[in-house]
């Protein structure tokens, strides 16, 4: 692990467990995840759907309805404030101001009966206590800042009148409106066209550097990670498999799952390679395999992997891995 910085981490998650009881049995979405984010840092959380990456972020924002969600953690904090103990008013103040979030599908992220301008202004009036007029002007500035063409028209538009790319830009504008110290981006480009994806990623990266805020990029796409973050957490079956700097992850992946994930990126090294896939499917979260969650699909697994879950060990270089085959 990197030496603890003097500043308090923006996001701190220690041994988080999230479960959803259902008729067919309890779904264990997150099983002992720990991660942290320093001010100004950018972290990617990568994993397949169902790996618990979104749920972990939703948990630290306290956006999971509980009940039904059962959340427990040694520590769950935003800007040093324990969100498990925080009251309603504290949470309202933390959300939007300390931490903001953008979501996967911009088409359904806005209230259909209010204009974009009204919805951005609402946030400004709430957190920055602006008047109607000032909030509208600031909303216009924000739309310009996210490089929306004819921001005046977009301000007066209803969500159904705009394209997905425009809406995602507007959502970023809304998320950044109150200068959050950390931005959670939950698959922000998955629902968009490929050409728009690159623009949105570039925009997020630029704004992050410009505003000096922390970024947590949740994605299943290794390409997105490579372009946007400094450090990567690889998740599988509700657990952290590996955590390292982005260059280390790409050049010296240690965990078999990380290696398999990288091997399945098409067209790597420019060669005409066959597309490699990871055999098998994601583990059933209501009945996770014993031992290492990846062992049923791991080419290197042995009896010990099936019997006993490997601990997440930290090496001298700060890299963390949870694998019996890897000595950090």
């Amino acid at each position: 692990m990197t030496a603890p910085s003097a500043a308090e981490p923006l996001v701190e998650i220690r041994d988080l467990h999230v479960a959803f009881p259902q008729f067919e049995g309890t779904v264990h979405a997150v099983r002992g995840v720990s991660l942290h984010l320093a001010p100004g840092e950018s972290l990617g959380i990568v994993g397949e759907s169902g790996s618990g990456k979104s749920v972990s972020c939703m948990a630290v924002m306290r956006l999971l309805r509980s009940p039904p969600a059962q959340i427990s953690a040694d520590r769950l904090a935003l800007e040093g404030i324990d969100v498990m103990a925080a009251g309603k008013d504290d949470l309202t103040r933390l959300r939007g101001r300390a931490a903001a979030m953008i979501f996967q599908d911009p088409m359904t992220a806005f209230d259909p009966v209010f204009t974009i301008g009204q919805q951005i202004a609402e946030t400004l009036r709430l957190h920055r206590e602006m008047g109607r007029r000032a909030a509208r002007d600031e909303a216009l500035n924000l739309l310009r800042r996210v490089e929306i063409r004819n921001p005046e028209a977009v301000l007066e538009s209803y969500p159904h009148q705009l394209s997905g790319g425009m809406l995602q830009r507007a959502m970023i504008a809304m998320a950044l409106s109150c200068h959050p110290r950390v931005l959670f981006a939950d698959e922000p480009t998955t629902a968009l066209d490929v050409t728009v994806q690159a623009q949105i990623l570039q925009l997020i990266k630029d704004l992050q550097a410009e505003l000096g805020m922390g970024l947590i990029m949740v994605t299943h796409d290794m390409g997105v990670v490579a372009e946007t973050v400094d450090r990567v957490v690889v998740m599988y079956g509700g657990q952290v498999m590996e955590q390292a700097g982005v260059i280390d992850i790409f050049e010296r992946p240690a965990h078999p799952y990380t290696r398999a994930l990288l091997a399945s990126i098409p067209g790597q090294e420019g060669g005409r390679r066959r597309l490699t896939e990871i055999p098998g499917g994601s583990p059933d979260p209501s009945d996770p395999p014993g031992g290492c969650p990846f062992h049923p699909r791991c080419p290197e697994a042995d009896a010990r992997c099936a019997a006993e879950a490997p601990p997440l060990l930290t090496g001298a270089d700060g890299r963390q891995t949870a694998c019996w085959r890897v000595t950090p």
Binding site: L63, T92, F103, A175
Partner: peptide
Amino acid sequence: PFVTVLRAKGLPERQIVFKH
């Protein structure tokens, strides 16, 4: 989903329910 977005931006529950 937009209700989750409203919560994420820190709108108080009362305002979410009565306004949106």
